[in-house]
Amino acid sequence: MKLNKAFATVALAGSVAAMSAPAMARDTISIVGSSTVYPFATVVAERFGTKTDFATPKLESTGSGGGLKLFCQGIGTQHPDITNASRRMKPSEFDLCQGNGVTDITEFRIGSDGIVIASSKNADNLDITLEQLFLALGKEVPNPENEKELIPNPYKKWNEIDSDLPNVAIRVMGPPPTSGTRDSFNELALQGGCEDLPAVADMSEDDMEAVCQSIREDGAFIEAGENDNLIVQKLIDDKGMYGVFGYSFLEENADRLQAATLNGKVPTAEAIAADEYPVARSLFFYVKKAHIGVIPGMEEYIEEFVSPAAMGPNGYLKSVGLIVPPREALMNLQDKAANMPNLQKDELM
């Protein structure tokens, strides 16, 4: 009998726990989005949490695309308030937002991130142009005898492309296709080195992108997981290997890794901020204005993010590897935080 009763209580307690689906208000800011912005936004969130009386915001690293999809799902506490992105919102995503009632969005461009090609300090450093990089990594490259014709990539060693490059096999580790870093690498580095080649000159835009953004699959490019620490570890162990990852990982391992010079530019914080380094991209976050005033602390969080203490020339975001915006851009951001202007679709076109 006792057992009987015990069972009934346990089952009841269980079903109560399951049924009490909450229509509760949320007092924690919910942030989703890019894994590239994640290490910066988390630091801001934590500082914000200790500095103010608000709860520390919750951050999920969902990738830029995944974050925008969640963000544009609608208005209401079950949807995120802010999304981070390592690329700009696409017009199609803007339409999705509008369709779901997320009409008022403010965009913040918070700084830059560079993608570097690094190797162990003991390896031969690369001094390479984007075109040479494409020749090394593209799936189909122009035939050296006939520059109009595309052939499967024949290069096995770097010095086959240019005799000044090191005499080692082409082996590059990089992020998988799901990663935003890979998207930017394809778009900025590979396409940047390929779009002016005669072989693709007569192609339509789509065909050109298909050729320029295809990475060889014969083992010379090795897809590592999303974990950049793994690539760093591999580079240190294997002198002939090169790796593709974000600038913050280079900075963290500065005394063991060196970065390749691309188009004559070394990836330094200054070169990336000034957009001189060719493989640099901007980082963003988007705010759902309808949630301001509903979720406590949103305005204060944004203020903290764009404050000089965070993003100034000596700000704490700089020490975790963010390439901070120049003074003027920071002033504009602070204006934006005060006025919260709506994002217009034609800005994204």
């Binding site: 726990a17 924690t28 919910s30 994640y38 988390t42 969130a45 520390t56 951050l59 999920e60 690293s61």
Partner: peptide, 17 residues
Amino acid sequence: IGMVAFIVDVPDGFFDS
């Protein structure tokens, strides 16, 4: 379901992140 997240505060209930 969003439990892979950066959460600083120690949760104090079943409906806390």
